[in-house]
Design a binder for these strands. Structure first.
Lengths: 232, 232
DNA sequence: CAGAAAAAATGAAATTTTTTATCTTTTTTT
DNA sequence: AAAAAAAGATAAAAAATTTCATTTTTTCTG
């Protein structure tokens, strides 16, 4: 994690886009840019919360560990995204970890300044509240899926979520390269199970894979898998 | 669901406790009290979001359904709690359902008024933001548990969560009576599995049950079960 | 570029959890 | 208060998923 100040343009992240123009100089003065290598941790579960991050470039995974080897990826953060906001509230330590999936640059500001930002930019606070509401909904939807959806559906969901977040080429190739292990952590299953499901989906001509590139051929069928058996 | 205006005292709920004194009359003018019978739905997944609720008395469960018969209880709301705030953000329909566990009284206000409340009471918005942050942390912790913790641990967690939220008598009896089915929905397992685990826990002298009353005898062991196998 | 380490693939075995089925007891409704 | 519906118990069978063991391939490091 290397200091590389002056990289970000104080324009493109969730904070910069939603705060008062008058507050921008304060941000510019406070922010610190950090360059993070692939697989490097930005912060980890249990670390004391010192501040908040915004992703400037590169993709980041936000996850929880268990048993030292089982992990559950909660979300992916791409450029512009806020990171570390789960450290807000009563907790003084991060409840989650974040690591770069590839070389990334993040923008950091300490918590005191961020809280001041909240107090001053009430509209930003409101936007953040709405963002939290959406995240909460997403989290609870995933929770239900984890509890009641069979692995195949969960993998299908994961693929669709990645498609939505990162988009695809015109041919349908999802614009992110993930290790299968990460895919498994995201779907809440083991590597082997995910691998089996992916093989199935390939045989059913719903997706094709080439290395870490995944192409969705039959979006309807994939969507169907996430809803089948659901009568509600 | 019966209108019973004038029941709540506009003093005890999350909103009334955290907003400007000057705003109280506006609340008093806008609020509508509703009496809800046991097992009656207050709103359900997919209903258009029209407003927000606060629990005045009685316990309420917030849940998601799947397959028309599988449900996952996300949280319990007791007196004072906010309800329906998951309808905030982009969604125009509730992402979850809420039902009374026993006869309950709730306070309702429509969404326009609530959003006005947010704009006017910036400190309330900030508090709500912190509340959301905590809920998000809780949700994600549960998500990981669902993904990686064995049922026994999940049931133990559920018991501990109920103890924390509702308290116990001096003898250790948890102050809430739940159907085993609801316990199962809360732990993210089937009734049979929960039953098997509860039998085990009873045999191990960790809990005892009498009807729907659950008494925790050995809190340490119960806590141990939620952490064992975890090396982190 | 070589060697090591990590990731991907795969099959079989073991385990966990759910499903199914049946019966008893409670609770609710009429 | 009787009848009907829902909840509580329990066991056995079935299904889903994980764990384990092993091989191959890819990626990274020096």
């Amino acid at each position: 994690m290397e200091k590389k100040n002056g990289i970000c343009d104080t324009k493109s992240c969730f904070l910069c886009k939603n705060c008062l123009p008058e507050w921008q100089p304060a941000i510019a003065a406070q922010k610190r840019n950090l360059k993070i290598k692939k697989n490097e941790l930005i912060f980890k579960e249990g670390d004391p919360v010192t501040g908040i991050y915004f992703v400037y470039s590169g993709n980041v995974k936000v996850f929880k560990k268990w048993d030292n080897d089982k992990e559950l990826i909660l979300r992916f953060a791409k450029e512009g995204a806020i990171l570390g906001h789960r450290g807000l509230g009563k907790s003084s330590t991060y409840p989650i970890s974040a690591a770069a999936l590839e070389t990334a640059v993040v923008c950091y500001m300490d918590m005191d300044f961020f809280e001041a930002t909240l107090k001053v930019n009430t509209d930003f606070t409101y936007k953040l509240l709405m963002f939290f509401a959406v995240e909460l909904q997403e989290s609870e939807r995933r929770m239900r899926n984890l509890a009641h959806m069979p692995v195949k559906g969960r993998v299908a969901e994961a693929l669709l979520a990645l498609k939505d977040q990162f988009g695809t080429t015109p041919e349908g190739v999802i614009n992110i390269e993930l290790m299968w292990q990460d895919m498994a952590s995201y779907a809440g299953a083991t590597y082997e199970t995910v691998f089996r499901v992916v093989t199935e989906l390939t045989k059913e001509n719903i997706i094709t894979t080439a290395g870490k590139k995944i192409r969705i051929i039959n979006l309807e069928k994939l969507t169907e898998i996430t809803t089948e058996n659901r009568l509600l």
